[in-house]
Amino acid sequence: MHSVTPVRTYVLIWVVLTIMTFVTYGVAQIDLGPFNIVIALAIAAFKMTLVIWFFMHVRTDSPLTKLFVFAGFFWMAILFVFTLGDYVSRAWMPGGKFW
């Protein structure tokens, strides 16, 4: 049923994950101001995607599984977007610079 993923692929992904761990450490040594957190989170998201896509076999799984994985992230996006929507607009005042 599932196509067999060659061991080579798994090793490659593992190597990439390991390298990204060192990159995270390396970047943390440099002060990039507000981008510190952006880069750290971007690397983490990239690694997470690799794990879900390859190690958790979502790549070769049914569209239904993909839909549920997508729904999970979509729901998290709802939480983030609406909560941040509050934070960003909290200081806005009617007649202020945005209106």
Partner: peptide, 8 residues
């Protein structure tokens, strides 16, 4: 009433 943005 908790201090959330009124636009939210």
């Amino acid at each position: 009433v908790t201090g959330m943005s009124m636009y939210a």
